[in-house]
Design a protein around this nucleic acid. Structure first.
Lengths: 227, 227
DNA sequence: CTAAATTTGTCCGTATGTATT
DNA sequence: AAATACATACGGACAAATTTA
């Protein structure tokens, strides 16, 4: 893992606190030493980061008292920090790890909240994927199947999480890997795995659904990354 | 759950496919009937949605052939669909459900990827939260603790998911509920639960860590929502 | 009012990894 | 390929200002 600029975590946490409104104008934020401890970085580094915010007049520091959030311009930071969130830089390996951790959890919610209409939608996607003539068409219905599953959780936050994963999946590096890894027999296997998952969801069999999800993802990872 | 406009899911799926680049210029998207089936909506509704995209010249339809992605202006849609993702409208109940599903999964990754430096950071946050004089200061360190946990997964996607949750947590409705629900004795209980979790993480005891997470979240939900 | 504790400001020496010569 | 210079981060120490007991 490459050594990223060492104050980055602190910066993101500060932005987060600004954005969420937890740190409002006039609020006294933790001391330099406390932040240094909490983020496992030296006070020198904390000071460098805070100096950046001070230059932009987002905070002010007074000796002997503490560090305070600027009183009049809390909107500047909103403009300054807002525009990320949608593009998450990640590697295929990281992505697969996250999917293996998160998707079984999503499946659990689907079992609790999914309706027969949702399961019907999933089956339509399976059927269309199976009948797809081209790889493009297959992936299209594969994507729609995943979308249908995420929506069956009936939870806006879960859907947002799924979109996050899916966006990362649309990245370049990933597309390259996939193109080379999806052979006709693997496609058949994927289709069977999808069917198994949808069936387990409809039966509300948590064990089976989780197993199917993990087995499928492990399969994809093996084909994609070789382990 | 409120009934959202019935073509919304389809619109979001289409935007998603544009954004991710899965549907490039000239691509033939699924037939109206297929979409109608896949999304559990009538073909009339599908046509209404598609008409919206056709008006904006993002797709073109030719009778007897299919619906095609516009050839020259795929950037328009990017501008048109990009700016959400950061603000997810959700209710406290939905949020708690999602947290109960996702956070145990995150915990699992922390156990695999966390380092002793990460666990030290968490303990610093616990200590500072315990020493906090005001409720504000307590919540500040509580937030930093959660951030430390999310970062200990050492996965950019997981961190993004956590930020999504945290953003939703910063919403108005949530703040109101919390203010009224955090009494001194509850705060003490939360602190103990946090300690238990961090200890389990450091010992890499998956069972204990998951139990601690679920117990804590269930506790928070009961205090917040009454069930 | 005094004194101790806390917090930011400043400087120094060291270690480590990177780029250049 | 080796040696040098540079940038970055760390930890410690002390001064100055403020808060608190």
């Amino acid at each position: 893992m490459r050594q990223e600029r060492s104050g980055a975590a602190l910066e993101e946490a500060i932005d987060e606190n600004f954005r969420s409104g937890r740190w409002r104008a006039g609020h006294r934020i933790p001391t330099e030493r406390a932040l240094s401890e909490a983020f496992g970085i030296s006070r020198t580094t904390v000071r460098r980061v805070l100096a950046g915010y001070k230059d932009r007049r987002l905070i002010s520091q007074v000796v002997g008292s503490g560090t305070y959030v600027g009183t009049d311009l809390p909107r500047l930071l909103q403009a300054a920090t807002a525009p990320d969130a949608s593009e998450v830089a990640t590697s295929p390996a990281e992505l697969m790890e996250a999917r293996l951790a998160l998707e079984p959890a999503i499946v659990q919610m689907v079992i609790r909240a999914g309706t027969s209409v949702d399961f019907d939608r999933m089956e339509v996607c399976c059927r269309n994927a199976e009948n797809a003539a081209t790889l493009e068409a297959f992936e299209q219905w594969d994507g729609l199947l995943h979308e249908a599953i995420a929506e069956a959780a009936h939870n806006a936050l879960i859907l947002a999480v799924f979109r996050l994963i899916n966006n990362a999946r649309g990245q370049e590096e990933w597309g390259m890997l996939k193109k080379r890894s999806v052979t006709p027999e693997r496609r058949l296997a994927y289709q069977a795995e999808h069917r198994t998952l949808v069936r387990a969801l409809r039966m509300r069999d948590l064990e089976a659904a989780r197993d199917a999800t993990q087995a499928h993802l492990a399969h994809v990872r093996r084909n994609l990354l070789g382990y």
